[in-house]
Amino acid sequence: METLEDYLAGIDTPSHHERLEEIFNWISEKFPNLKSEIKWNTPMFTDHGTFILGISTAKQHISVAPEEVTMIRFAEDIAQAGYSATNGMFRIKWKDQVNYELLEKMIAFNIEDKADYTNFWR
């Protein structure tokens, strides 16, 4: 697996495939400077070689991983959106709406916060 298209091709449920493709396209259009990559079999978006956001799928949900620092900063927003969360990621159930405003804030925060960062992970 080398591209987002490769990842999407492995999703058997058409509605899941479409939903994830919609999210990937939204990120690519909203943040055209981000590079989409597959690392550790997970779709990721990076900026100047540093991790910004990872998105993957599970049977019941989409996993969104923006790193723990971002999870802490947006914990209240994640809870208000109705998403369950762990230290490093939150879950969007397939039946739930995607809170694009929250995604935009998290991605913008990571881009700004890691502007001078030279490592992949924080």
Rank of each mutant, 00 (worst) to 15 (best):
M1N: 10
M1K: 14
E2R: 14
E2M: 11
T3G: 09
T3W: 09
L4P: 12
L4D: 04
D6F: 10
D6E: 10
Y7N: 01
L8D: 03
A9V: 08
A9C: 09
A9H: 15
S15L: 10
H17N: 10
E18A: 15
E18C: 03
L20A: 02
E21W: 02
E21A: 15
I23Q: 02
I23R: 00
F24N: 00
I27Y: 01
I27W: 01
I27D: 00
S28R: 15
S28T: 06
E29G: 06
N33R: 13
L34V: 01
K35R: 13
S36T: 13
S36M: 07
S36N: 15
E37H: 11
E37I: 14
E37M: 14
E37Y: 06
I38A: 06
K39E: 07
K39P: 06
K39D: 01
K39W: 10
W40K: 07
W40D: 04
N41D: 13
T42L: 13
T42F: 05
M44S: 09
M44N: 09
M44T: 11
F45Y: 13
T46P: 08
D47H: 15
D47I: 13
D47C: 15
T50L: 05
F51N: 12
L53T: 04
L53P: 03
L53V: 10
L53M: 10
L53C: 03
S56D: 08
T57G: 12
Q60S: 14
I62C: 03
V64T: 00
A65P: 10
A65Q: 13
P66V: 06
E67S: 14
E67Y: 08
E67F: 06
E68M: 12
R73F: 10
F74I: 07
A75M: 08
A75F: 09
D77W: 04
D77I: 02
D77G: 04
D77M: 01
I78L: 03
I78E: 01
I78A: 00
Q80I: 02
Q80V: 05
A81G: 09
G82C: 07
Y83P: 07
Y83S: 01
Y83I: 04
S84Y: 10
S84C: 05
A85D: 00
T86S: 11
N87D: 11
G88Q: 12
M89F: 11
M89W: 11
R91M: 08
R91H: 14
R91T: 02
I92M: 03
I92V: 12
W94T: 05
K95D: 08
V98A: 01
V98R: 00
N99G: 03
N99E: 03
Y100S: 02
Y100R: 11
Y100P: 06
E101F: 09
L103C: 00
L103P: 01
E104I: 05
E104R: 10
K105V: 04
M106P: 09
M106N: 06
I107A: 01
I107D: 03
I107C: 05
N110A: 04
I111H: 07
I111R: 12
A115P: 04
D116M: 09
Y117V: 15
Y117W: 15
N119A: 13
W121F: 14
R122Q: 13
